[in-house]
């Protein structure tokens, strides 16, 4: 029977070693430490910065570099104008380029400050074939300030535009390509290249420190005014709270808050101008709870608007992963 011991031992080994693999508990990471970031928009607020809270990466470029902003998703079709430049747009009744030679009689429109797709100045352009006229803003010389354009094509891959300067009659056809991993694609009229810049991929930014146009509807008539503030990535959600102590905020305490993806939910009001002190003062008691594109929660509050040299346009904030 000595010879049998090997197969017997083999059988015993098979029986004992063959069990379902059990899960090993996952150990969740502890909350992150408090971090600080300063965004150098500059005293003239001329630059905008994309900020990724997870990596603290920033990407900056001039605020005024684009004129039209296009939805980048395959089924997207909405188009915005650059409020930071005080741009305006008017829909004409013309269906040919030559029929438009001046801005007389045009009704100018502006996007809603929230960037709500249903409230754009250009509106539902796929439903008609009329030309638009864009006023790029008062900072541009007259020769390059007004452009007429028609949105002539739309697909999952991109947009097709026909455009010309207001006085020109020679049409230029331009394709604005969509990129599925972005939220928006940008276009500038007087650039040789159709893309002035590309924003970071959707998962690589949470906040955009920029200038944008707010419309104070409590004024009569409503007052469009360019403000310096924060727009969020539309895939990010933010809750605003001013009742909790910043240090006591945890993952558990934010679950009952109401989150929104309205782009100007953080906006500009985390600071105000103190006329008596002749300086901007931040409101550190406003807590912003941010759920990023990866589902990570952050708490954030602003702590300053000035750099160490006393120059404005350097918003500084404290933030911490929950």
């Amino acid at each position: 029977m000595r010879g049998l011991s090997l197969p017997m031992a083999f059988g015993l080994l098979l029986s004992l070693s063959s069990c379902f693999r059990e899960d090993v508990p996952v150990v969740l990471p502890p909350p992150g430490g408090l971090q600080y970031l300063q965004v150098p928009q500059g005293p003239d607020y001329s630059r905008q910065y994309y900020v990724d809270l997870e990596t603290a990466d920033t990407l900056g470029m001039p605020v005024s570099v684009w004129d039209l902003c296009f939805e980048a998703q395959p089924d997207g079709w909405h188009v915005w104008i650059n409020g930071a430049n005080q741009a305006r747009v008017a829909q004409t009744t013309a269906t040919s380029l030559a029929a438009i030679t001046d801005t007389a009689g045009l009704v100018w429109k502006m996007d809603a400050p929230s960037w709500n797709p249903d409230s754009t100045a250009i509106g539902a352009w796929p439903t008609h074939n009329f030309f638009y006229v864009l006023d790029r803003g008062p900072a541009f010389a007259d020769s390059i300030r007004f452009y007429k354009f028609q949105l002539t094509g739309l697909s999952a891959m991109g947009y097709l535009l026909t455009l010309a300067a207001l006085k020109d009659t020679l049409p230029i056809n331009v394709v604005v390509q969509k990129l599925i991993d972005r939220q928006y694609m940008y276009f500038a009229f007087n650039k040789s290249a159709p893309f002035p810049f590309q924003e970071p991929p959707t998962d690589n930014w949470d906040l955009l420190f920029t200038r944008y146009r707010h419309i104070f509807t409590d004024q009569q008539p409503p007052l469009p005014y360019v403000v310096t503030g924060v727009l969020i990535n539309p895939q990010v959600a933010v809750a605003v709270d001013s009742t909790m102590d910043f240090d006591s905020i945890t993952y558990a305490t934010v679950q009952q808050l109401e989150f929104t993806s309205r782009r100007n939910v953080i906006g500009y009001a985390w600071k105000y101008y103190d006329f008596s002190a002749q300086a901007f003062v931040v409101r550190p008691y406003i807590n912003y709870i941010i759920r990023d594109t990866k589902g990570i929660y952050w708490k954030l509050r602003f702590i300053d608007f000035y750099n160490s040299n006393g120059q404005k346009g350097y918003p500084t904030f404290a933030y911490q992963q929950l």
């Binding site: 996952v26 969740l28 990471p29 990866k294 990570i296 929660y297």
Partner: peptide, 14 residues
């Protein structure tokens, strides 16, 4: 038969 799913891991739950 055990058909185990891909784990979803966030900082707050797995």
């Amino acid at each position: 038969i055990r058909n185990k799913g891909e784990p979803v891991i966030t900082p707050y739950q797995a």
